[in-house]
Amino acid sequence: MPACRRLDVDPTRTVFVDDAQIAVDGAAAVRMTTVLHHDTRSTIARVCLDNGVSAGFHQ
Rank of each mutant, 00 (worst) to 15 (best):
D18K: 04
V47G: 01
L49W: 13
R6M: 09
Q21V: 06
M32R: 02
A29V: 00
T34W: 02
T34Y: 02
T12K: 15
H58T: 13
V24M: 02
V47W: 04
V24D: 00
H38W: 12
A20W: 08
T33F: 04
R41V: 13
G26C: 01
Q21P: 09
H58F: 15
Q59V: 15
R31M: 02
T34I: 00
N51K: 09
I22D: 13
T40Q: 11
D39I: 05
D25I: 01
T43K: 06
D10P: 09
V53D: 05
V30W: 03
N51R: 14
M32S: 00
I44H: 09
V17G: 03
V24S: 00
P11D: 02
A28L: 02
A3Q: 08
P2T: 00
S42Y: 11
T43Y: 09
R46V: 05
T34C: 10
L49N: 11
V15I: 12
A23Q: 13
T40E: 13
S54R: 12
L49P: 01
D19Y: 11
A3R: 11
G56R: 13
A20K: 15
T34D: 03
H38F: 11
T43P: 05
R5W: 09
F16W: 04
A3K: 06
D25F: 07
L7K: 13
G26N: 02
D25K: 09
A55S: 14
D50C: 02
V30K: 04
S54Y: 04
A27Q: 01
R41D: 11
A23G: 05
C4S: 06
M32F: 03
M1G: 14
A55N: 13
F57G: 06
A45H: 05
V15C: 11
T14S: 12
D8E: 13
I22V: 12
V24F: 01
T12I: 03
S54G: 10
R5Q: 14
R6F: 09
T43L: 10
H38A: 06
A45G: 05
Q59W: 14
N51W: 11
A45C: 06
V35I: 09
M32D: 00
A29F: 02
I44D: 06
C48P: 10
H58Y: 14
R13G: 10
N51C: 08
H38M: 09
D8C: 07
T40C: 14
V9A: 10
T43V: 07
S42Q: 15
V9S: 05
D39S: 11
T14D: 06
H38E: 15
V17F: 07
D18V: 00
G26S: 05
R5F: 08
G26W: 00
